[in-house]
Amino acid sequence: MQNSKKIKLFLVDDDALFLKSLEIQFLDNADFDIETFATGELCIENLYKNPDVIILDYNLDGIDNTAMNGLKTLDKIKISKIKIPVIMLSSQDKIEVAVSCMHHKAFDYVIKSETAFVRLQKIITSIFKYQKIEKELNWYMNRM
């Protein structure tokens, strides 16, 4: 990814207040291109826009119980766009939930709290450091 390009970030959460708060924090602290979605279905419909990172709520069916939940959304993302890092976000602090998300190929799991935004920033930074290292390694291996 080039430095001049903004990071395209999808935020997906059915809690409108939390979603707006998260969007404002990202816009205030970095130069992101952000799109927000209240459902997993809307996120899936917009994957053609190729986000760099998706932050996805675990309980997307909290308001509308017919909506696709976070894990089903994660699975659909990974089927069509496996390389997009997805960070799962939830108010649940049960280890079983975090482990389940990781088994479904989430990049990381963050508990909604006062420190969630700082943790998300650190994870996004580590994603791009990892991708840069991966590109350099691939370049090196192809030259051998």
Rank of each mutant, 00 (worst) to 15 (best):
33 D>R: 00
34 I>Q: 09
16 A>G: 13
42 L>T: 12
29 N>K: 14
38 A>D: 05
26 F>H: 02
27 L>R: 14
27 L>W: 07
21 S>N: 12
38 A>Q: 08
56 L>D: 15
24 I>E: 10
39 T>K: 08
20 K>A: 10
23 E>R: 12
20 K>N: 13
39 T>L: 04
15 D>P: 09
52 D>Y: 12
43 C>H: 10
16 A>R: 15
24 I>V: 10
55 I>N: 06
49 K>C: 01
46 N>T: 09
34 I>W: 09
42 L>R: 13
41 E>V: 07
16 A>F: 13
25 Q>I: 08
30 A>N: 08
55 I>H: 06
47 L>C: 07
50 N>A: 15
54 I>T: 02
44 I>Q: 06
49 K>F: 01
41 E>K: 13
35 E>W: 11
13 D>S: 09
18 F>S: 02
19 L>F: 02
43 C>L: 14
26 F>T: 03
41 E>A: 11
56 L>N: 15
40 G>I: 06
45 E>L: 01
34 I>K: 02
21 S>D: 11
39 T>D: 04
20 K>M: 10
13 D>E: 12
53 V>K: 09
15 D>Y: 12
27 L>G: 09
24 I>G: 02
27 L>D: 13
52 D>F: 10
37 F>Y: 13
50 N>V: 13
36 T>V: 11
24 I>L: 08
33 D>C: 00
51 P>W: 02
23 E>H: 10
50 N>W: 11
40 G>C: 08
36 T>L: 07
28 D>L: 11
